[in-house]
């Protein structure tokens, strides 16, 4: 397959993609690093001055930073947990024979198509609202006090909303994987006397391994930068209760117009994301080897 000619061609063919991504990674990042060393506020144009690492010191010692790290982790892990466990269970259910499989599949996949701004708005107003939301109606009907989800459990509410959006993705991948499972393997295990639970543990789950890896990888990529859901529902509040790193940096730079601080936060976010990326890529690389 590989001749000198074809290798040369291959390098040529891959270079636009590589160069573009390299530029996309390097140019803005370099600018961010530069800005992060400046005292630079959009409200005071022309007043930029060198700040060294001051922005980093402020950003990293800001209690909001630690809150944001914690929230980011809770958000990512919470959603991953709900969607993978829920996805496996749901996939197992949908893999059984039943009437109307096609329609149920259509129903289940639908949230994946809903844009984050819409799902956030709909959940916030029509379901979680303590006065007119559907949950409030339900609580009143049961004689309970309506619960103000977004004020009292803002992060959990956001986790719920995001998990609702990503559950279909996990379910469908895992369902497809289940359907590709060799029936004869299952039959053989049954002949060998494995109980249904053992069959699940020894055959089904390992078979799903690769797909679960993909679910985790793809979702992590998107979950690390959840933004619209927070912007629309809680604006990161109350306080910093639902501020993730992405939102914190956004708030610093575009709400307080402090470009220097915002950039420092951006750099920190990039570094943290890279740590996660390295860790994930290791895991994926191993799992996707053939």
């Amino acid at each position: 397959m590989a001749t000198l000619n074809s290798r040369r061609a291959a390098r040529l063919m891959i270079s636009p993609a590589v160069l573009l991504l390299l530029a996309w990674m390097v140019v803005p990042l370099a600018m961010t690093i530069y800005f992060s060393m400046l005292r630079y506020n959009l409200l005071m144009p022309g007043m930029e001055s060198w700040a060294g690492f001051d922005n980093y010191r402020w950003f990293l010692t800001d209690p909001a930073f630690f809150a944001a790290i914690g929230n980011t982790m809770k958000l990512v892990l919470g959603v991953l947990f709900i969607t993978t466990v829920g996805g496996v269970l749901l996939a197992l259910l949908l893999d059984q024979p039943f009437w109307g499989q096609g329609i149920v599949r259509v129903l289940v996949i639908a949230p994946f198509f809903v844009m984050p701004t819409v799902s956030a708005l709909v959940w916030k107003n029509m379901f979680l609202n303590p006065v007119n939301g559907l949950f409030a109606h339900a609580a009143k009907a049961l004689g309970l006090q309506p619960y103000d989800f977004l004020s009292h459990a803002p992060l959990a509410s956001i986790i719920g909303i995001v998990a609702w959006q990503w559950l279909p993705f996990a379910t469908l991948i895992l369902l497809t994987a289940l359907q590709s499972l060799d029936r004869e393997q299952m039959d053989a295990a049954e002949m060998d006397g494995a109980s249904p639970l053992q069959r699940f543990g020894y055959i089904t789950l390992p078979h799903l391994g690769r797909s679960i890896t993909v679910v985790i990888l793809i979702q992590t990529i998107f979950l690390l930068s959840v933004f619209a859901e927070i912007l629309v529902t809680t604006n990161g509040g109350p306080g910093t209760a639902s501020t993730n790193l992405t939102y914190l940096v956004y708030a610093q730079s575009l709400l307080s117009f402090d470009v220097g601080m915002g950039s420092a936060g951006g750099v920190v976010a990039v570094i943290l994301a890279n740590i996660v990326a390295i860790f994930l890529m290791r895991m994926i690389g191993k799992n996707l080897e053939r």
């Binding site: 590989a2 290798r7 950039s263």
Partner: peptide
């Protein structure tokens, strides 16, 4: 035309996707 580094290039490409957009929003 896979080479020794093909997998690495692919993984690197994916990792650029993990770079938080917010980090480069201002520039």
């Amino acid at each position: 035309v896979p080479g020794k580094r093909t997998k690495d290039v692919l993984m690197w490409m994916l990792s650029t996707k993990m770079m938080p957009s917010v980090g480069v929003l201002i520039p």
